[in-house]
Amino acid sequence: MKLEADKYTVEYIRKTRMITFKGVLRLQNKEEYRNISELLSQAASETTGLPLILDMRELVFLNSSGISSLSMFILKMRKLDKEIHIHGNSSIPWQTKSLKNFQKLYSKVDITFPSDS
């Protein structure tokens, strides 16, 4: 399942339990993030046993409405008691500064910056 627009793509591959975000996500409000939220919800419902992986390494910008929408998804995963692994990019400032907020919402969010390892 893939959502594509001029500035971004979000792709969910069920087999690898991975959702990959690329580009610039600066949509107007949470309502505009609805399609992405629905994709995330589908992935959440289909993932059992192993963690769902969010690959953010090529997501250059995410505005606060996007962080808010993803936070809603984190709360949903908390309710379902399912783990999340986030792959970040340490050269993208919003990721080093703001990804940790998801861990404040849910302790079963694991964040790694693969380029550092």
Partner: peptide, 29 residues
């Protein structure tokens, strides 16, 4: 940090407003 969590948990039902932008600017940057 507490204000961020509070706003997110309170905003679960509001699809228009986010209200966390200024918090993030102060807290994270």
């Amino acid at each position: 940090d507490e204000l961020f969590v509070k706003k997110i948990e309170a905003g679960a039902m509001d699809n228009k407003k986010s209200g966390i932008g200024l918090i993030l600017l102060k807290k994270d940057y």
